[in-house]
Amino acid sequence: MIKITDEDFSIDDIALKLRNGETGAIVFFLGIVKAFREGCSVNELIVEAYREVAEEKLKEIRTRALEKFNVNNVVIIHRVGRLKPLENIVLVAVSAKSRKEAFEACSWVIDEVKAQAPIWKKEITPKGGRWVKESFKI
């Protein structure tokens, strides 16, 4: 399952979906809005996506993760819109028979999402807006 959504998500609901008799581990990565960054408080985070391409990219990443790692399921959910500090931004959940593969796959998936999906973040601070431009080496 992949989703780009204006609404918040429930980690418990995702955990419930991933539980089954062949799963011994579920690993989550949850990205949340920082309240402070680079010496400045953050009032709000605007998350923008080019949805059509971002959804395609998330699907590709999920498919590649299922091929590359010995895992049972991969969920990627990314919020868009105006978010307040401490709110959820992105969730990656990976279920597997054992934790090692689940940890590795989860780490790989979030790195790929950050490097490949056309999703951008703008922080609104007391001094004005600033785009978050991160560089990634995978």
């Binding site: 990205g31 080019y50 391409v53 990314h78 931004i89 992105v90 979030i110 999402v113 950050k114 490097a115 490949q116 999906a117 056309p118 999703i119 951008w120 973040k121 785009w131 978050v132 431009k133 991160e134 990634f136």
Partner: peptide
């Protein structure tokens, strides 16, 4: 036209 990934 859009920038490459901005960091998710």
């Amino acid at each position: 036209l859009f920038p490459p990934a901005g960091g998710g």
